[in-house]
Amino acid sequence: MIEMKNVYKVYDNGVTALNGVSTTIKDGEFVYVVGPSGAGKSSFIKMMYREEISTKGQVSINHVDVSDMKLKEVPFLRRGIGVIFQDFKLLPTLTVYENVAFALEVIEEHPKKIRRRVMDVLDRVGLKHKARFIPAQLSGGEQQRVAIARAIVNSPKIVIADEPTGNLDPETSWEIMRIFEEINTSGTTVIMATHSKEIVNKIRRRVIAMENGKIVRDEHRGEYGYED
């Protein structure tokens, strides 16, 4: 479970990104985070994997206050959270297999388990046959699927995606969304910041809408509510 209690985030330049945010996201939920550019969506989700630290207020993951977490404890927090970015953030000189395996190598997993697990998740995202390709040999949609495979290879309880379909064509976006639905169906909590009106309105899930650093709407099976 993710809990935020009266969370503020004020950057050094004086910009207030979060202004008294409070919410609870239960295990197994699928949540869209929507709102205009500059609304605070990225800061909101970055709090969850401690990429950002609140200026004031409490952010808890499974009743552990991540705001007070020591730096050496952060990697252990992130082992249970998979993060997916709009620009993929793949290592360009590594193969598809190596990009995904890297997430297990850094936690010193056994080599036999790494191979088995990596091939399993590549099969799950439909890229087992391209394990030896490098990112430059893949389409944008394929690169995003590699990024998803890397995010879920540790079997995280939470997957956080920041505009995961933002650079993809509509057909590929729907393919990516099917993978996210499967991940969620398996019991993983999915939190997705998105500007896609079509996706939010078609695949109805909980919607948290943000404006000016505040949650202005929180609806079960909500709609996007903004123009593209």
Rank of each mutant, 00 (worst) to 15 (best):
R79Q: 10
M119H: 14
A151C: 00
R50N: 06
S42G: 08
N99T: 08
V34A: 11
D12F: 06
S42R: 07
N201K: 12
R132V: 05
S43I: 09
K202P: 10
S196A: 06
K70A: 11
I134T: 12
I45G: 08
T172G: 05
Y97D: 08
G225P: 07
V216W: 12
R204W: 10
E108Y: 13
S22M: 07
I114E: 14
N62K: 11
W174F: 11
T93F: 15
I203L: 15
D68W: 04
E3I: 00
K214N: 13
F102A: 13
I179F: 06
L90D: 09
G187Q: 00
E181A: 10
T23I: 06
D65W: 05
R205H: 14
P164D: 08
V125L: 05
P164K: 02
G166M: 01
L91C: 08
V216L: 09
K157E: 07
T188R: 02
D123S: 15
E182C: 02
R178T: 07
K70H: 13
Y8W: 15
R217H: 08
R178N: 13
P36R: 15
I84K: 04
I199E: 13
E182D: 15
K89V: 04
V31D: 03
R78A: 04
V200C: 10
K5S: 08
S42M: 08
N154M: 03
R116L: 12
I191L: 04
G20A: 06
H129Q: 11
A101L: 07
E219A: 03
T24M: 03
A131V: 09
E3H: 00
S43H: 09
Q143G: 06
R150N: 01
Q58P: 01
G222S: 06
D12R: 15
F133T: 03
I191W: 04
M4Y: 04
L71F: 11
G35N: 14
V34T: 15
G57T: 00
V7Q: 02
K202A: 12
E51Y: 14
S173Y: 06
E163Y: 03
L138E: 04
I199T: 09
G80D: 12
E98V: 05
I84L: 06
I114A: 11
